[in-house]
């Protein structure tokens, strides 16, 4: 997608893009980062601490002030056309001022300038992440790093899949209590559903496919009665799984949910919004979910 020498000043926006840059070992080339949903994985924390970070997305002039030659984004709304507000302008308009760009393939748009809604999330698998790693590795001139990350992820996920092969698959719901008394759940087309499958479970809301996140009432949760509940905490650059504790407690102490299998068995576990987005975090997420679903098999 870009040409010429490997980029030297990379601006990374959104969690998957920032973590991917660290994973590829180009942290020292980061001209700036913006918009994390959670604390980066522990192995990248030191490197992230040395990089400029903005909690919200930069304006076009703030981006240009950072003097990047390459912009790596986890979502394509960042490159929406004029008039869209969390945008720094289309990729074509950035190219005109000498800035190349890349959108991670799980969310790659069919056309420049569109917002996030233009994307079909149902097709995203771990393999998409590998392809991005390989392509960006070539672009940044760090092919070996890319291959190492890919084989590490492959190996970790394969190990989990071997450990959970043939087990009973508990039903799992990724649940976020909303302020209005409804509950946001991850549907069948969300990447979270893919993670649950690989970790030896089934998404209790797998049949829903209209959009990634669906808001249901307490009655629907009681009706579907998941065996395990994962929370969906978000969004702060310092957030770790520990910070999801309040959500766990809220679900455990909700009188309307008191009859749920997951609540009776205290099978409500901290999980993050960032853990279910498609990126280098996937191996970590699959391991985490598997250890919760099958503690006897996965250490």
């Amino acid at each position: 997608m870009a040409t010429g020498d490997p980029p030297q000043r990379i601006y990374a926006a959104y969690q998957p893009a920032i973590e991917l840059a660290h994973a590829l070992g180009v942290s020292d080339r980061l001209a700036g980062t913006a918009f994390l949903d959670a604390k980066v994985l522990p192995e990248y924390a030191d490197r992230q601490a040395d990089v400029d970070y903005l909690p919200s997305l930069p304006s076009r002039e703030a981006l240009l002030q950072a003097n990047p030659d390459f912009v790596l984004s986890g979502f394509n709304g960042f490159f929406a056309e004029q008039g869209a507000d969390s945008s720094v302008g289309t990729r074509a308009s950035l190219r005109e001022v000498g800035v190349q760009s890349w959108i991670l393939s799980p969310l790659c748009p069919s056309e420049d300038g569109l917002t996030d809604q233009s994307i079909d999330p149902a097709t995203v698998k771990v393999e998409n992440i590998y392809r991005d790693l390989r392509d960006l590795g070539a672009l940044f001139g760090v092919e070996d790093n890319a291959e190492a990350v890919i084989s590490d992820m492959r190996e970790r996920i394969a190990t989990v899949e071997k450990q959970v092969a043939g087990v009973d698959r508990p039903s799992v719901a990724i649940v976020s209590p909303n302020e209005d008394g409804t509950y946001g759940v991850a549907s069948g087309i969300d990447f979270g559903s893919h993670i649950i499958e690989r970790a030896g479970g089934t998404n209790a809301f797998a049949d829903l496919s209209k959009k990634r996140n669906i808001d249901v009432g307490a009655e629907e949760l009681v009706k579907r009665d998941p065996d395990v509940i994962l929370t969906d905490a978000c969004c702060d650059a310092s957030m770790t799984e520990q910070d999801a504790r309040p959500e766990v407690d809220a679900i455990l102490h909700d009188p309307a949910l008191s009859g749920l299998t997951a609540v009776e068995n205290k099978a409500v576990h901290p999980f993050l919004f960032a853990d279910r987005s498609a990126g280098v975090r996937a191996a970590h997420s699959v391991e985490l979910v598997a250890s919760v679903l099958h503690p006897d098999r996965v250490g």
Partner: peptide
Amino acid sequence: VRADYHQVLSAASWLTGSLANRG
């Protein structure tokens, strides 16, 4: 309410009234 989190951020900005990225 039915929009995804990242879209909400962008939409909230437009709905507030914004002069960013005008041409």
